[in-house]
Amino acid sequence: MIRAIISILASIVISYATLILLPITLFAVAIGIPLFLIKPRYSGIYGFAIGLLTSLSIYLLYSPSAVYQLSVRTGEIIGIPGSVLIILYPLIYAVIAGLSSLLFSGIYEIAKNIGNRR
């Protein structure tokens, strides 16, 4: 239990660090690394949730009306509805985080099984 909590907290810290320091979605992969300790059936969900909530929470830094206005104007330029524009990056980020969590915990589980067989 403690191991799970520590890995979730580490994952959250990594998520904020990558969001704040690195602009591209690639680094969402790092969120999954600490979650390898969690069983694959849960790790994907945790990774996705951490990716989504941490990235959405960044919007709290801004005024909601300013974010809305910006999303409408930028959406018009890019050709995507404003509401989709707000959720787009967090969603992609979360999917990558979820999949990477699944990947790392899967690798860990398989490695553990191989070890046990030996």
Binding site: L19, I20, L22, P23, I24, T25, S55, L56, I58, Y59, L61, Y62, S63, A66, V67, Q69, L70, T74, L85, L88, Y89, P90
Partner: peptide, 13 residues
Amino acid sequence: SILNPYMGIWSEA
């Protein structure tokens, strides 16, 4: 990448 909530365009807000 310009839609990153922290590093992207939203910092304009």
